[in-house]
Design a protein around this nucleic acid. Structure first.
Lengths: 132, 132
DNA sequence: CTACATCCTAGAGCGCGCTCTAAGTCAAGA
DNA sequence: TCTTGACTTAGAGCGCGCTCTAGGATGTAG
């Protein structure tokens, strides 16, 4: 299951994920990321698995999941398999929220496009009137 | 073009739109809503047109447009027809952003569903093992 | 050994979008 | 006349999700 191959610095992980070093430390502090083992008891050494988890976190964020819910999810994840059912429940809830959000966006997109067409035509008309 | 029929109190507008009175005053203060005329020089009296505009604002917000951009849009709107072209440009930009955002959500939705299926199956397997 | 980059922690600060407070005005009804 | 309650303003406060600072420790190349 684990494919921990490298020992990556925080900078490398920042580059790989697009998060800043600040944010990576912050995520660890608030429990979104497990306590990263240290080289010489100070400098963090991440694994490629950690990058995978961080990228998953970023996807959860991008769907609109709150930090609080992500903390809950991360805590469950760390507790192991007996929390699978609860995690599935969380994901199902998220799925429904995302679907609803997309439907709302779709709806608003229609209005935006309607206005673009309407105003776009008016702009064309303005140009004609301005012409000799 | 205008269909101003009623003179509505701020409370009625709050009820009609779902915004709070606080937020309505805030939106007016920062220029998202034009200065609402007053009854007896104090109490605001909205029109049904105002409600339409506010509902449009709420849709812009729901698409993710920032307050700053909405201020710009509202200012253009008040300047009149010669700003139509610029407003169309803003709407086109917004359209693209919404489309991109929806594509991202769609992508993440796939992952969420994949995990639901995967973990869901694992949960079923757990139940079977627990059974006599 | 020195210089320099990189990393560390704890905690303060920030931008956004509201949300609420305090103190006061005003109008209508008992 | 008095009370009640809806409304007003200016400005403070808040929750979120980072983002940055200060001050210090550590690792690596020359």
């Amino acid at each position: 299951m684990n494919t921990q191959t490298e020992h990556l610095t925080i900078q490398q992980v920042a580059d790989a994920t697009g998060l800043t070093e600040h944010t990576l430390r912050y995520y660890e502090r608030i429990g979104l990321i497990h306590p990263i083992p240290r080289a010489g008891n100070t400098h963090r050494r991440y694994t490629t698995d950690d990058i995978g988890w961080i990228q998953f976190l970023m996807k959860l964020r991008a769907t609109g999941m709150s930090i609080q819910d992500m903390q809950r999810y991360a805590a469950l994840q760390r507790q192991g398999d007996e929390t699978l059912a609860e995690r599935v429940t969380m994901l199902r809830t998220l799925e429904q929220e995302v679907v609803a959000h997309m439907a709302e966006l779709e709806e608003h997109l229609k209005l935006i496009r309607y206005k673009i067409d309407l105003y776009g035509a008016a702009v064309e008309a303005q140009k004609e009137c301005a012409a000799p």
